[in-house]
Amino acid sequence: MLKEIHMPKLSPKSDQYFFGEWHKQPGDAVKEGDVLFEVETDKVISQVESQEDGVLKEQNVNTGDTTNVGDLVATIEVA
């Protein structure tokens, strides 16, 4: 089953974040709690963890993209 990963809300002040780098690549096994990617907002780098166990299927954003809270960021194939 495919599970969509959406950009969580990370800052009380802002809903628009600078997308940093991916820590997992398509095809990588992902466990709950693994860092998937990081974003920068308001001078803060935040690492976002996976809530799922599975395999990263697709990355929908790239380094430097502006992303909004709720945007589709990735899909994970879960068992």
């Binding site: 860092v35 308001d42 001078k43 803060v44 780098i45 690492q47 963890e49």
Partner: peptide, 21 residues
């Protein structure tokens, strides 16, 4: 408003963060 410390309106300190699990 940028999370800096100021004295008399001039910046004396800037801050930044990183968050790991």
């Amino acid at each position: 408003s940028r999370n800096d410390l100021v004295v008399g309106g001039r910046k004396v300190s800037g801050s930044a963060q990183y968050v790991t699990p």
